[in-house]
Write a protein that binds this DNA or RNA. Structure first.
Lengths: 245, 245
DNA sequence: GAGTGGTCTAGACCACTGC
DNA sequence: CAGTGGTCTAGACCACTCG
């Protein structure tokens, strides 16, 4: 095709437009997490562009972890329901650097109304219905993190304790499978705080112990905030790892 | 060229080899921070490959922040001595999300011998000479972080208080300009701790206040650890920001 | 206008997977 | 062996910067 992006106002390259089309197909559920998307050559003829252009679009989506390429097999929609992805957002490491398996213990799951930081960060009005989950994550049998998770009830209304306790896998995997919500990106704000009574009790640490407070907001394909959580990590024997580059 | 990578043992693509060659030129100082490297077409003929192959190599180096592309101008060696890069490794934000300017106050700069975590992380034997810098960073006039920086004296022997106080710019910019050491990547380990007396005094917070402890190791082009630092951040009015994706 | 990076194409061939 | 992604090429043309 030669009569390309002639009338686009502020120039966007063809592969950028293809990328948007692919994201739309992901967002509207045409291709579901874990599924294979059409081959590069098929997409090229569908969109009327060369394979190289489709390739560049897919390259960027793979870099952003929206897609996963597997040589010889195809290109797949990324999913949290995979061993290598199930802890993608977990930055906690044991003091010796190893990545341990962890177990989750549910404390509560109840309906509530939005307020404070959670309401602001989720773009909800005060008082809108939400679901609030509290849980403790243990590493090698020892409680390390306490999480309070707030979700809009408009989407997660069907979430309750039995659903969570029956689920094998991560929260994000549950959201994908049971609610059709795929969270692809999150932002975290870290501070150091002193443990409050309830959290201290759940973690088995002294009140007033220092804890790492981790506030997280996770976003969908459309960049809508869909989950707010406040974690409190006991960093006596674990640390939070990041890379700067 | 058709007689390409015929005898390479475990297949490495051509652009990967070009990438290695480019990194070598960066590491041995053929092209210095801030300088422009040869154009893609010149590199293509120098290496006897197509421009597209050079391009792919440069693309990846630009993604890794080793090079910076500027359309219409050329490709440049990334440097910390640039406004947009001078705070590249600083993840601190004010509580309202803004990025403030900061001022550094030097507490001490002295020769010491390697020991403990610093020795281990810098691959130094106990007792090898190091330079230790302590400083406080203030945001909007208020002290927020206390840093203890340890550097191998074999490279940074000429560093002293007068050099630091005369310098306008970041530490990494100083390392580049005065010591020919470019640090391209760093890893951080975060924990929550209680303030010790000396740090508390320097930051003007109560002893036993919770602080965010940030241990950082920074690496050169050759992936050698060249800087170890232990920061203590007062997160009462600031937070540490990261993105998960 | 000359030079640089950025996009797009068409086609050849290689590497890997699974039937 | 067919199908998929991965690499490489050669060449055309576009967008941007600067003198």
């Amino acid at each position: 095709m030669n009569e390309k992006a002639a009338s686009i106002p502020s120039y966007q390259p063809l592969y950028g437009q293809i990328k948007s089309l692919l994201v739309s197909s992901l967002a509207n559920g045409e291709w579901k997490p874990g599924q294979m998307i059409p081959s590069e050559s098929e997409l090229a003829s569908r969109f009327g562009v060369s394979q190289g252009t489709v390739r560049k679009a897919i390259d960027e989506l793979a870099t952003d972890n929206l897609l996963m390429r597997r040589q010889g097999r195809g290109t797949f929609v990324a999913t949290h329901a995979e061993d290598r992805n199930s802890t993608r957002f977990l930055r906690l490491r044991a003091a010796d650097g190893s990545v341990e398996t962890h177990e989750s213990r549910l404390i509560s799951c109840r309906r509530d109304t939005a307020s404070g930081r959670a309401a602001v960060m989720l773009n909800l009005a005060e008082g809108e219905p939400v679901v609030e989950v509290r849980r403790v994550l243990s590493f090698s049998g020892r409680p390390v993190t306490h999480d309070r998770i707030v979700l809009p009830a408009s989407v997660f209304g069907a979430l309750d304790a039995s659903v969570i306790e029956a689920w094998e896998g991560s929260m994000y995997s549950l959201f994908e499978t049971r609610f059709g919500v795929r969270l692809i990106r999150a932002e975290e704000h870290l501070t150091a705080v002193v443990a409050q009574a309830d959290v201290a009790a759940d973690l088995g640490v002294d009140e007033r112990s220092p804890l790492l407070a981790v506030e997280r907001v996770a976003y969908t394909y459309d960049d809508l905030p869909m989950e707010w959580r406040l974690g409190h990590y006991d960093t006596a024997s674990h640390y939070y790892a990041t890379t700067l580059d």
